[in-house]
C-alpha cells in the first residue's frame, strides 16, 4: 500500500518534471526541473528498498552533476541565448517518433513480464505448513555467500523476527522460509550488503571505474586549459 502511494506520487512528479525539462525555454528552469526528476527517482529507489542507491543518486546527480550544470549555465550566461520557439516539421516528426518509441517500450515492458512468471522468492510456496525445502535452503545458502552473511547471525537475528520461539533456519516451515528469503533480499539495498557485493563480485569493474574517473579528470583539465591567458576571452 505504502509503495503504491509512493509510486503514484513520485511517478507523476518524475514524468511531469521530465516534461518540464524539455518544455522550459530557460536552461536554468530546465535544470531545476531535472533536479526534481532526480529527486523523484531517489524517492522511487527508496520505495524499491534501494536506500544506498537513493542516497548516491542525490549526492551524485542532485548534489554534484546538476550543480555543475547550473555553474556552467551561469558562467556562460546561457540564459540570454534562448532561441525563439518554432514548430517545424523536424519537431513534429520528433514527437511522433517519440510517441511510437514510448508505445513500443511500454508494450515490451508489459509483454516481457506479464506477472505470471514466478519470481525466485515465491518458488515453492505451494504447500502451507510443509517443512523447509532443499531449494529454499540452497537459496539461503546462495544469499549467505553473496552477501557474506553468517548462518549464526541469521539464526539469531532474522529467524526470531519471522517465527518466534524458533532459532534455526532448518526448523522453519516453507512459507516462513519464503518470508526469510524475501526479508534477506529486501535488505540488499543496505549499504553494507551493496559494499560486500561491490568489493567481491564486482571488484574489477569497480577498479576500472576509477580509471574512467581519472581519464575524465585529465581530459577536463586538458580541454579547458587556456594556452595563453591574454589571448583567450
Amino acid at each position: 500500500m505504502a509503495e503504491q502511494i509512493l509510486f503514484i506520487i513520485f511517478g507523476i512528479l518524475a514524468v511531469g518534471s521530465a516534461i518540464c525539462v524539455i518544455a522550459f525555454k530557460n536552461p536554468i528552469h530546465s535544470a531545476l526541473a531535472l533536479v526534481l526528476t532526480f529527486f523523484s527517482l531517489a524517492g522511487l529507489f527508496i520505495s524499491l528498498g534501494a536506500y544506498f542507491v537513493a542516497a548516491v543518486q542525490v549526492i551524485v546527480y542532485a548534489g554534484a552533476i546538476m550543480v555543475l550544470f547550473l555553474f556552467v549555465i551561469m558562467l556562460l550566461n546561457l540564459g540570454r541565448l534562448q532561441a525563439a520557439r518554432q514548430i517545424n516539421k523536424a519537431k513534429v516528426f520528433a514527437v511522433i517518433v517519440g510517441i511510437i518509441l514510448a508505445a513500443e517500450a511500454i508494450y515490451i515492458g508489459i509483454r516481457v513480464y506479464d506477472g505470471t512468471a514466478v519470481s525466485p522468492s515465491q518458488a515453492g510456496s505451494a504447500v502451507v505448513g510443509a517443512a523447509i525445502t532443499t531449494e529454499q535452503l540452497d537459496q539461503i545458502a546462495t544469499l549467505e555467500s553473496t552477501y557474506q552473511l553468517d548462518r549464526a547471525e541469521i539464526n539469531s537475528t532474522y529467524v526470531p523476527k519471522i517465527a518466534e520461539q524458533k532459532s534455526t533456519v532448518e526448523t522453519l516451515t516453507a512459507s516462513e522460509a519464503n518470508q526469510l528469503i524475501e526479508k534477506l533480499q529486501g535488505e540488499m539495498g543496505k549499504p553494507d550488503r551493496i559494499g560486500t557485493v561491490l568489493f567481491t563480485k564486482f571488484l574489477l569493474p569497480f577498479e576500472v571505474t576509477s580509471l574512467i574517473l581519472l581519464a575524465a579528470l585529465i581530459g577536463v583539465i586538458v580541454l579547458v586549459k587556456r594556452e595563453d591567458p591574454d589571448t583567450a576571452a
Binding site: F7, V15, A18, A94, V97, G98, L101, I106, G109
Partner: peptide, 23 residues
C-alpha cells in the same frame, strides 16, 4: 507493486529524454 509499472515509468522517462534530444 508489480514490475511492469516501473518498466512503463522508465520507458516514459526514457522517451521524454529522446524527444528532448530531438527537439
Amino acid at each position: 507493486m508489480a514490475l511492469q509499472y516501473y518498466l512503463i515509468l522508465s520507458a516514459l522517462l526514457f522517451t521524454i529524454g529522446v524527444i528532448g534530444v530531438l527537439i
